[in-house]
Nucleic acid binder design. Structure first.
Lengths: 320, 320
DNA sequence: CACGTTTAGTGAAACGTTTCGATAAACGAT
DNA sequence: ATCGTTTATCGAAACGTTTCACTAAACGTG
């Protein structure tokens, strides 16, 4: 592997001169700089990232911890938002999964990270922040000088959703919940309970889910077992709603007639499945972009405040 | 940041002893090893990745270059396959985009990569391979000792697709092509042309596409302009087929009646849109898994051969 | 007990950069 | 001609590991 040393030798200068020249320091004359650059190119020199980051204590890489599992089609637009923001900077993005890559933060493989991944506990993230990692969390509330937060307005989302079902005249309500560890799931559920409590004469029931399609199908099964009259179901994410579609398509129960369904997230699929899935929408692109802006600020020690992403109701055929 | 040096001082041993102990060398007694580990934990020591990889010339990270753009829902199952395979090893996965992260390979940020990304030219990849990077390419044919190849059987896929349409009695055929740089697109197109050439009395026409939904919609527009009688369309990927659905839903033309559509890839969405999209299927999980196995072999200098992934036809309602 | 051998630990170099402080030459001003 | 100042370059230390070559003590063997 050709190093700065080889260039120095060939150019008949010191390695420090080479380093300065390659980094465009004004200390070196244009002539020597040009000559050194020439030789570097000639030798196919590429800098060694490990050596540089060892010395500079930075990697110019930020991570996005998103994928505790790689299935689902939730992350596309979010990543796009992150990437678009990063494109005008000299930072690069890597996408990693909390399932394994826990070392990236403490070992300083990356300068910072955006986290939406239950694979990390609050304690773990705080530990990393204590060690100096800069983090933007998308799925929890953490107070720490090295941590910023950009979260969804889950509370409003749930309220919009429940009110919509009630407006439509539904009085028999199911909620399919999310995993216990998920902050979003919990916030959404709390808001549902609060909204429901304000009304009398409604039948309200919770079914345990875990944000996966399969758990949505299971919930549908339970609903079908208990079926007496038309019901409305609020799935705490779209993925489960789709699982419910899957299951119901094997029965005679019709969505928008016997079972009315609303989801949360407005993933791409919701506008393609039939009937189209009513859901709670928010800009994933903006979410990613805002998180990135804040992470960059955190890294450069600029002041930064926590943010909330607005949500809105999308009425579609799955609720009549 | 606490280093091996701090531990050595506190333990009253040399730094080499600490290094050996932490790495579990048998040169060090169990007693000292235990004591050193204890102190390391106490001081919250974490190794510095840059220093280690500088010295060891390896990072234990492999990359997946997949995302020239982050939209689309193609990559989920592929990543799952890669990840599942990696889980039993000590390698970690990062997902990166060829749009920016070109330095990761030459600068040895990663030990190797799986590449399915037109953001890299053949020449560029060869250059990296020459510099010592280990690569598995999924979207091109490259002969190099450091490069292995796992590709789809596009040729069979196209043949299956065309034959299916002809079997169904269609004689007016459109093909919506892919981007010129895409190897898969070209292979598919070549095979289509070859298959079509074997039949007389069929009307065959190509429309330029680029694998995006938008280009599928545009193609649909053109088809509608020229419409005289029912036509069959082979979209060289599902994404464009979906774009075509989008467009046609704004017209009175019906899929499976006026316009018959078959895609390629069998992405998740194809079985949800109505009517379900006929397409060419292959195991993305296996694709990722095989690529990973081969990459690991390449990295450990084991012999490895190129592979092809089988495809099969999925008949669905979009073609009658 | 004297010998070679094993064991447990040490010291120092090396990996490829960056950067501080030093130095020598060139320059401008008096 | 002399003095300070700027300019271009250099030397060396430092970042945090790993690992080779070495040593001294402990051990087993005849």
């Amino acid at each position: 592997m050709v190093s700065i040393k080889d260039i120095a030798k060939k150019a008949g200068v010191s390695i420090s001169t080479v380093s300065y020249a390659l980094n465009g320091s004004s200390k070196i004359t244009e002539a020597t700089t040009a000559r050194i650059r020439e030789i570097a190119k000639e030798l196919n020199y590429v800098p060694n990232a490990a050596a540089r980051s060892l010395k500079k204590r930075e990697t110019k890489i930020i991570g996005a911890f998103l994928m505790s599992d790689y299935s689902g089609n939730f992350f596309g637009p979010l990543l796009q938002g992150i990437n678009d923001t990063l494109n005008s900077t000299d930072y690069e993005l890597i996408v990693c999964s909390g399932i394994k890559s826990h070392r990236f933060l403490p070992e300083q493989v990356i300068d910072g990270a955006i986290v939406l991944d239950w694979g990390f506990s609050d304690e773990e993230l705080i530990k990393y922040a204590d060690l100096g990692s800069k983090l933007v969390v998308l799925d929890r509330e953490l107070e720490h000088p090295n941590i910023n937060r950009v979260i969804l307005d889950n509370t409003t989302g749930s309220a919009l959703s429940i009110n919509y079902l009630l407006e439509k005249g539904h009085r028999k309500l199911y909620v399919v919940t999310g995993p216990d560890i998920s902050y979003d799931a919990n916030q959404r559920l709390q808001a549902v309970r609060k909204a429901v409590k304000q009304y009398d004469h409604i039948h309200y029931q919770e079914i345990k889910g875990d944000f996966s399609k399969l758990s949505g199908a299971r919930a549908a099964d339970q609903i079908v077992q208990e079926y007496k009259e038309p019901v409305a179901v609020f799935c705490l994410n779209d993925e489960m709603a789709i699982g419910m579609y899957d299951y119901l398509s094997t029965t005679t129960y019709q969505i928008g007639k016997h079972v009315h369904i609303i989801g949360f997230d407005n993933i791409e699929m919701s506008q393609y499945i039939m009937p189209n899935l009513a859901t709670i929408d928010y800009s994933k692109h903006k979410w990613g972009a805002l998180a990135t802006v804040n992470l960059l600020k955190l890294i450069s020690n600029e002041p930064v405040v926590n943010e909330t992403i607005d949500v809105s109701l999308i009425k579609r055929g799955s609720v009549q």
